[in-house]
């Protein structure tokens, strides 16, 4: 069932992208193959694959990945959705607040999401944010945004 829905979505995306790709023309060309044919070829192959997914029944064989994992019930879906939202907020705050505060908040919330106690979550969030900042920005020379803490540096 899910496989068919996915096939349908994939097919629609392929058609949409193919329409977009149809207009790709090189203003002046010095080679026989333009920028358009290769992506179109791939979209065609993907579309055929999508039709295959729609047309065939997902074989009666049990998908091995699902044996050990929890079934995707409501509870789990809410958890996954929360996690995605938290990640997105983290990405948005990354430059706005700076790395340390964003990572601290993110670390605490993520810890809670993975069943850590409040105390453990707060400690691990603070330690991770500060520790990783020192490790990457100071020791490994990977520049990270300071954000609202920029005033403290100088």
């Amino acid at each position: 069932m899910y496989q068919r829905i996915f096939g349908l979505v994939l097919l629609l995306i392929c058609i949409g992208l193919a329409i977009v790709a149809w207009d790709y023309h090189a203003p002046f060309s010095y080679e026989p193959v333009g920028p358009r044919s290769y992506p179109l070829l791939l979209l065609l192959l993907m579309g055929l694959g999508a039709i295959y997914l729609i047309a065939t029944k997902p074989a009666g064989v049990h998908e091995p990945a699902d044996e050990h994992d929890h079934p995707l019930d409501r509870h789990m879906l809410i958890k996954v959705a929360t996690c995605v939202v938290v990640l997105t907020i983290y990405a948005a705050l990354f430059e706005l607040l700076g790395f340390i505060p964003a990572a601290m908040l993110f670390g605490i919330v993520m810890s809670r999401l993975y069943d850590g106690t409040w105390l453990a979550s707060v400690i691990s969030g603070v330690v991770l944010a500060v520790g990783l900042y020192l490790l990457f920005d100071k020791a490994l020379d990977v520049p990270l945004p300071l954000g609202i803490l920029a005033g403290l540096e100088n």
Binding site: L87, T88, D115, G116, A120, S124, L128, L132, F136
Partner: peptide, 30 residues
């Protein structure tokens, strides 16, 4: 996991940010 996963997630975000230093890449990664 509660200590491990946040660490993985933050290190991942640093790795992605380090490439271009844009948050666009973080959103794209998500």
């Amino acid at each position: 996991y509660w200590a491990l996963v946040p660490a993985i997630a933050i290190i991942t975000s640093i790795g992605v940010y380090a490439v271009h230093a844009t948050t666009f890449d973080l959103f794209l990664m998500i």
